[in-house]
Amino acid sequence: MTGKFRINGREYSIEFDPRDTLLTVLRENGFTEVKEGCSEGTCGACAVLLDGKVVNSCMVFAATAIGKEIITSKGLGDQNNPHPIQEAFAEVGAVQCGFCTPGFVISTFYLLQRNPDPTEDEIKKALDGNLCRCTGYVKIIEGVKLAAERMKNEKV
């Protein structure tokens, strides 16, 4: 089947198998920043924003995302103009192997949109769908705090 998707602000017309997940469609069309870590909704490496809400793209049929707005980590920033969350993660050492990081960035973005000044407990709960095996999460939490701080100041 064919569907129109709005990915990172641009419209794409994509042909795909009706059983494909959004994850498969995104990766096969070059959005490799969306990572496949488990394909069962438990690792969060494939997290994207679907109409503004964080979802595991492996748990979404592409057919149900037609016509919707999809934002991946690359939609938030690039290497030369990173989003404050991406910058903060890199700065504090929240990125080790980095395979889980785009997913964490998306979950963090979703959190900070809704709650610009989260407590540590709120941060941890907001990241309850993301696994990381390298960092022990310490620096990731720190990265979220730093990003929140900077994003608040930017707005002022």
């Binding site: 290497q79 990173p82 969350i85 993660f89 890199a90």
Partner: peptide
């Protein structure tokens, strides 16, 4: 970390 931003972006 040199590749930190690139990894966080997903590049």
């Amino acid at each position: 970390k040199f590749d930190g931003v690139s990894l966080a972006v997903g590049a």
